[in-house]
């Protein structure tokens, strides 16, 4: 069984951390992954930086620009990760925009992911219909979970289609926003979380965007399987460096 599915069967709320590969320093990738696992994080999203990250707010934009400037690129990330399974067993997801993966070759990319021990992909700009038509078979062949996003604006009908196409978890974007918004959760989120819970989906949901402390983590995981933190983590390592990851995780749970 895929490590993501295994993890989702455990009786606990999942804490997932996103970070941008190659940031703050080019070769921080492996150490960040090891420290996140050591500190009890349940799932890691490794961001493959892109020049034009449409769905991201300023924090992840800046970390992506910096990572690219540091020299990060697809092949180098695979190179850095090639022995990662010798030291960690935590589920690993690569999150990135579609163009770099399309240039690498989708099949070649998925094959490398399997060889390394990557468990899934999140590609926000690979739409559902294109995935089903052109790429689902490849993802399945290489044992990769594909994670789709939904938002408060996504209709019930489309959520059900996404539920059917999913084989890991659904990424529930908490509000109509890019990453890193910090307005907290209000009535809109309550209604939205309630609506999704009532749909009784087959696929577990993990909430992302706007989670930055214990309070928002708890709110987000009341009716869902877990929550994802990205911008707040990147802000922390930008300010305090990567040797203080445990301090950050303690502020969440």
């Amino acid at each position: 069984m895929n490590r993501i599915n295994q993890k989702l069967e455990e009786d606990k709320k999942i804490l997932s951390i996103y970070f941008t590969a190659g940031y703050p320093k080019l070769n921080d990738t492996v150490k960040i992954i090891q420290d996140l696992e050591k500190n009890g994080v349940d799932l890691i999203e490794i961001g493959l930086p892109f020049s034009d990250p449409l769905a991201d707010g300023p924090t992840i934009q800046k970390s992506s620009t910096a990572a690219l400037k540091n020299g990060m690129h697809t092949e180098l990330l695979f190179e850095q990760l090639k022995d990662i399974r010798k030291t960690v067993s935590i589920p690993l997801i690569i999150m990135g925009y579609f163009n770099p993966i399309f240039q690498y070759g989708v099949e070649a990319f998925c094959k490398r992911c399997q060889e390394i021990g990557i468990d899934g992909l999140i590609l926000p700009d690979l739409p559902l219909d294109v995935y089903l038509k052109d790429y689902e078979a490849i993802f399945v062949k290489y044992g990769l979970v594909n994670v789709f996003l939904i938002t408060p604006q996504t209709s019930d009908k489309r959520i059900k289609q996404i539920d059917n196409a999913s084989n890991g978890f659904i990424y529930m974007v908490s509000s109509a926003s890019t990453t890193g918004a910090t307005t907290g959760f209000g009535e809109e989120q309550k209604t939205y979380f309630g609506r999704i819970a009532a749909l009784n989906l087959n696929t577990p949901q993990i909430v992302g965007f706007g989670i930055n402390n214990a309070e928002t983590f708890d709110q987000a995981t009341q009716t869902t399987a877990g929550a994802i933190i990205g911008s707040a983590f990147i802000k922390h390592i930008t300010q305090f460096g990567i040797d203080t990851i445990s301090d950050f995780i303690k502020t969440i749970r």
């Binding site: 926000p124 700009d125 739409p127 938002t151 996504t154 109509a176 926003s177 890019t178």
Partner: peptide
């Protein structure tokens, strides 16, 4: 339309 789901609606 290669857009994130946020833009789908």
């Amino acid at each position: 339309a290669f857009i994130p789901e946020m833009l789908y609606p």
